[in-house]
Simulated scan of single mutants.
Amino acid sequence: MVEDEYTLVLVKPDGVKTRHIGDIITRIERKGYRIEALKMINATEDELERHYYDKTDKPFWPEILTYMMEGPIVGMVVSGTNVVEAIHNMAGATNPGQAEWGTIRGDFGREWPDGVLRNVIHTSDTVDGAAREIKIWFPEFKF
């Protein structure tokens, strides 16, 4: 039997500001996945550097840092069979302007005049990545 996986979901500051927390939770629960942990977080620079470790040397890093600290985020640990891939697919394309309708980013995301890529949600893209990310945002969580 296949064991359940765990994944991290972050409702980013724009998703919180536009009041889509409930919409996103509802979509996750309607698919039959379980929310194992949930909290509102004011991200620190240290947490963001650990989370986006592979982007800190990119020219767009300051933009990500500023965006992710614009307001609170909502973090969730979600579990279920093949949940990492399923939730990642539910999120849609990274650029909300290219995301399909029916995905979280396609339905709730949009492009903004300042050109900052605000895309509503983060989802882990691998099982190992999920475990690493969950330890950053939910150090108290026991797998």
Rank of each mutant, 00 (worst) to 15 (best):
K142V: 14
E36G: 02
H88W: 09
E133M: 07
V127M: 08
T56E: 02
E100W: 07
Y6V: 15
G115L: 06
P139V: 10
V83P: 02
I104C: 04
E111I: 15
G129A: 09
V9S: 10
F108I: 12
E63M: 12
G75M: 08
F60E: 13
L65K: 12
G129Q: 08
M76A: 12
V83F: 09
I87R: 03
E45V: 11
P62D: 11
T56Y: 00
E70N: 13
Y6D: 10
V127L: 13
H122W: 02
T44G: 03
L48P: 05
T103D: 03
T66K: 14
M1W: 11
R27Q: 15
V9R: 03
I121H: 07
A93N: 09
T56W: 00
N119W: 04
P59I: 04
G102R: 03
I25Q: 07
G22K: 05
V77Q: 00
P59V: 10
R132W: 00
V74G: 00
T103F: 02
L10H: 03
H122I: 10
H20R: 14
A131M: 06
V120N: 06
D125N: 15
K31Y: 13
K55N: 05
F143S: 14
G115W: 10
V84N: 04
D125S: 14
M69H: 08
A86M: 11
N82Y: 12
Y6C: 12
S124K: 08
I24K: 00
G22M: 02
N82I: 03
Q98Y: 02
G109R: 01
T26R: 15
P72G: 01
A43Q: 08
V78G: 03
R105L: 04
G15K: 01
E45H: 03
F60L: 12
I87C: 08
N119V: 07
K31S: 15
D4Q: 13
L48S: 02
P72M: 01
G92I: 01
K58W: 05
N119G: 09
W101M: 14
E45R: 07
D128I: 08
L10I: 13
Y33S: 07
G92L: 08
G15R: 02
V77R: 00
N82F: 08
M68L: 15
A86V: 14
E45T: 15
W112R: 10
N95S: 12
